[in-house]
């Protein structure tokens, strides 16, 4: 009881609905990637002229080779499940201010033709039904609803033969 009384004597202030909006530039390659998923539901990666690795997320420098990349490579909308989780704890998404709906499947995905990986949602919430190596396909947001963000991909779906 004494502790509770003591706790109450310490004041705190809250930031409340404070908002500090940012406006980030995607750059030319990021813009190309996001515009293509928005307008054409197509994925593009970028290829290192030295090691030949194809990167998604798209970027202009291959870190290990430290070379500038300019060659865009079109990728499929299917890929492979690398690893996954099912998120069940609730938290507020700081990008939207809204509770992220749980549970949701969360996965590392390798798009066909890419050497690096993406993280995204997967439409399965039973971990027993997922296994590394399974095939997945991107499910895009409906026409007219895509805005040029990674959320233009609704989620990836397990391809169930």
């Amino acid at each position: 009881m004494a502790d509770e009384t003591k706790k109450r004597q310490y004041l705190a202030i809250e930031s409340g609905e404070m908002s500090q909006p940012f406006r980030w530039s995607a750059g030319s390659y990021g813009s190309k990637f996001l515009t293509e998923i928005r307008d054409n539901k197509k994925f593009w990666g970028i290829k290192c002229p030295k090691c030949g690795k194809v990167y998604v997320p798209i970027r202009s420098v291959c870190g290990p080779c430290y070379t500038e990349m300019t060659e865009l490579v079109q990728l499929g909308d299917e890929g492979t499940l690398i690893t996954f989780s099912v998120v069940s704890f609730g938290f507020v998404d700081p990008s939207t201010g809204l509770q992220r709906p749980v549970p949701y499947g969360y996965a590392v995905i390798q798009l066909d033709g890419a050497d690096s990986y993406l993280i995204h949602f997967i439409d399965e919430t039973d971990p027993e039904k997922m296994k590394a190596g399974m095939r997945v396909r991107a499910v895009f947001e409906d026409d007219g609803k895509r805005t040029g963000s990674m959320l233009d991909i609704k989620h990836f779906s397990l391809i169930r033969e």
Partner: peptide, 24 residues
């Protein structure tokens, strides 16, 4: 903000990906 935040679930979710992989 472009590639991670829209779907990232913080440390717990990120570490869970590694745990799944380690067990597999």
């Amino acid at each position: 903000p472009f590639w991670d935040r829209p779907t990232f679930g913080g440390a717990v979710a990120g570490l869970a990906l590694e745990a799944t992989q380690y067990m597999a």
